[in-house]
Amino acid sequence: MLSKRIISCLDIKDGRTVKGVNFENIIDAGDPVELAIAYAQQGIDELVFLDITASNEKRKILVDLVSRISRQVNIPFTVGGGISSVEDVSVLLNSGADKVSINSAAVKDPGLLKKMAGQFGSQCIVVAIDTKFENNDWWVYINGGQINTGIKAVDWAKKITELGAGEILLTSMNNDGTKKGFAVNITKQISEAVNIPVIASGGAGTMQHFKEIFISGKADAALAASIFHYKEIEVLELKKYLKNNNLEIRI
């Protein structure tokens, strides 16, 4: 059976990890490649690298990094952050990224999404949705959570599925950073509204939260950052816990 995926996310700036990571046996905690190898050894199923580099000139640093990761890491990884053209996608995939994650650019130009899926295949196009609950509904935000698009998250999820997205990375801005659990309701709503996989992100604090998002939230994968980086939850321990709770998990 297909297993539920546990994904770790690393924020990258100028080719280096942004937040500190608390790993033993890591010589350079700022080197994304070393961290990626360590995560792969711990049994993480996938990695997401989110580039928060502000300037376009520094794009080349990211491309070099992607190539170094692909050379040394033997599990799948997604690269996201500031991707706004077919050319951006082409360069990252050719450098060895397995998937790319598109966010604001898809909202600004939905046709772009269709073009990307047509050219590279849906399987490598992840659409990231940042969503916030206010005024009784979940809305899509862009530009790093600064602009409310006025589009409902469920509607957007359906739309991008039609346009050729292969996967949805759903981040609840209300839950992100709280460690109080994932946004179960909206994840379930979206997972039931579309027939592509949904990765839940934002709010992981305990192992129970993962169980809850897989069972009640119907997520196909769950993503977290700091709890893994700071070893508040060990990947293997989490996977054993979920497996003991009758979830299909790769150990």
């Binding site: 297909l2 297993s3 539920k4 199923d45 849906s122 027939n195 996989p197 196909d220 994968a221 790769r250």
Partner: peptide
């Protein structure tokens, strides 16, 4: 079959 499964299948399977 699109009606019964999430497509694409993405992830680790046995």
């Amino acid at each position: 079959p699109l009606s019964e499964l999430k497509v694409p299948q993405v992830g680790w399977n046995t």
